[in-house]
Design a protein around this nucleic acid. Structure first.
Lengths: 127, 127
DNA sequence: TTGACATACCTAGCGCTGCTATGCATACTG
DNA sequence: CAGTATGCATAGCAGCGCTAGGTATGTCAA
């Protein structure tokens, strides 16, 4: 399943912050974690993730530090800041507000089987 | 509550299509409907909505027609097309995929009280 | 040694999006 | 006649992910 650009943009920041709220991590690992968490549905590219991390660092929502693993690879670890946690909470409220609105609309339409168009007229056309 | 730009971008198309799936409508009425559905939390501007409607028309997800109300005002009514319904179903699946991922992450973090920072270290730093 | 592959990070340029500001027009109300 | 609500439209700006490219190193097998 591919996720469109706007939805990716809207979810990337809260997902990254939520992952870092679980514990410090680094770019490559975050990519794998997202894939794992979504059951493979979300497949981010590194070219999309790194700018997100840099922006979060610029906004002081995360802090970065370099480390070297036992294998000898250098990794840039990120840690969420208090400001980042507050921002995550705000993002969460916003998401849930929009989600509630969408659920309200979807509740109205019983089912959308998703391959073929729904029956043409559920409501009277009456302008 | 203000909703950030990316989240607005991600939700505008499915919300508009879902509203039109309930029945034909026009710009000004859609703005009021969104405000009502969200309990006032979502406050779209017309300068944001009209380009969305024009894009949907260009993509043939909706069809437009001019009408004149009893009061004498001209209105541009939009109707969702079969293609639009299929697209709405796809948007819905995508939204729910991302929502499930976020819920999984939020489930992990018990509570984010949202005004003040969470306790500094929930996990060992080990790395 | 060589090659392939996974790991690990970074960035320039493009197109698309909403936002702000602005404009136009009409019906209703005082 | 002025103010407000209704109703549609667009130009210019900033911000975003995406594509495509780059650099570098560890592991493993041929």
């Amino acid at each position: 399943m591919e996720i469109n650009k706007e939805l990716t943009a809207a979810s990337s920041t809260p997902i990254v912050l939520a992952i870092l709220a679980e514990g410090d991590s680094y770019g490559y690992a975050i990519l794998q974690r997202v894939r794992e968490l979504s059951g493979g549905s979300l497949q981010w590219t590194d070219g999309m993730l790194y700018p997100v991390l840099h922006r979060l660092e610029r906004l002081e929502h995360v802090e970065a530090r370099w480390e070297v693993s036992e294998s000898g690879r250098r990794r840039k670890y990120y840690r969420i800041t208090p400001r980042g946690r507050a921002h995550l909470a705000e993002e969460r409220r916003q998401w849930q507000t929009v989600d509630a609105t969408l659920r309200g609309l979807w509740r109205a339409s019983p089912r959308v089987p998703a391959g073929h168009p729904a029956p043409a007229a559920l409501l009277p056309e009456g302008a």
